[in-house]
């Protein structure tokens, strides 16, 4: 007679595989923990330095750790300036592109235009850096004269705006496309023109999704390194004047860590303090945008 036993049998291989898969899944948590721990550990060393105080760090405008100046604003000012220019360019342009693609373009036109934007999104940032330094800056100097320095935040910010444009346009387009057709029909049925419908009904309805795109764009701009490292300037400079050279947080990390750096020096630990700040800022921005996107999705589902 056949053995007919329906009781659970231990399946060793099956459990082993499941454990391995679980470990693969949980590795991402360890990555985050490792980032927080490693950056935090070195940053703590930096802040434990008797010379460094939080007040100095968050209020000073000079950054020269080796001679006792720890004012992060010297770097933050450049990060803010370049990011602002980038968003100033990419938000309106990206939004306009998104509206065109979502509300106007035919399927065929979209199938041509979307890959072009994807190419724009796929270009390595070091190439954008080359473009900023050797194309945009000379043009700016031709237009505005020599008052524009060879390294300047304006050129870096503008090119960063072009880099972020596809990100903002594709996220905004998703948000616009998620607005139900019935709302557009309602507007048309009241005798609205296409632009009136797009700008006054569809756009406001997609606003939170567009907000999420904006936040991700900011986070990308703040964390972008190569464009600013190449085109914006090499040296902390507390200024918000876009035609001047100044170094961003990311640019500073890249330049200092690229040189000869000895472990445990104040230069070394200070980089981790900056990186921790970067991480926390982008983390908060990303979390907010995810939350917004999820809420937005629920509303129309």
């Amino acid at each position: 007679m056949m053995n007919f036993d329906l009781r659970k049998k231990p399946r060793l291989a099956e459990s082993l595989i499941q454990t391995l898969l679980f470990l693969a899944g949980i590795l991402s948590i360890f990555t985050t923990l490792a980032i927080v721990y490693e950056l935090g550990k070195e940053a703590l060393l930096f802040f434990n330095n008797p010379d460094v105080t939080f007040v100095k760090f968050f209020s000073g405008t000079k950054w020269q750790p080796s001679i006792g100046n720890y004012g992060i604003w010297a770097l933050v000012s450049a990060t803010l300036t370049t990011s602002f220019i980038a968003i100033f360019i990419s938000l309106p342009l990206g939004l306009a592109v998104a509206i065109y693609l979502s509300e106007y373009a035919s399927l065929r036109v979209r199938s041509i235009l979307k890959p072009i934007l994807e190419v724009l999104a796929g270009i390595p940032t070091v190439v954008y850096g080359y473009f900023a330094l050797l194309f945009v800056t000379p043009i700016l100097q031709n237009i505005f004269g020599e008052s524009i320095q060879v390294y300047n935040m304006l050129s870096a910010g503008l090119v960063m705006g072009i880099m972020i444009l596809p990100l903002i346009s594709s996220m905004s387009e998703d948000a616009l496309s998620a607005v139900p057709r019935s709302l557009r029909e309602a507007a048309f049925a009241m005798g609205a023109t296409k632009v009136e419908t797009s700008l006054q009904v569809v756009l406001p309805a997609a606003l939170s999704g567009i907000g999420a795109a904006l936040i991700v764009g900011i986070s990308r701009a703040v964390g972008e390194t190569m464009i600013v490292a190449i085109a914006s300037g090499a040296g902390p400079n507390f200024t918000f004047n876009p035609i001047q050279a100044a170094e961003t947080m990311t640019g500073h990390i890249a330049r200092i860590s690229g040189g000869d750096l000895s472990y445990n020096s104040i230069d070394y630990t200070s980089l981790f303090a900056i990186a921790l700040m970067l991480f926390l800022v982008t983390l908060v921005l990303n979390l907010i945008s995810q939350w917004v996107v999820n809420r937005f999705r629920e509303r129309y589902e």
Binding site: T32, A34, I35, A275, L278, T282, L285, N286
Partner: peptide, 16 residues
């Protein structure tokens, strides 16, 4: 967490 990691600036990974 995975979605967030996708948005962490690459230079932070460099520091890690």
């Amino acid at each position: 967490n995975i979605n967030n990691l996708a948005g962490v600036p690459s230079i932070v990974y460099g520091m890690l």
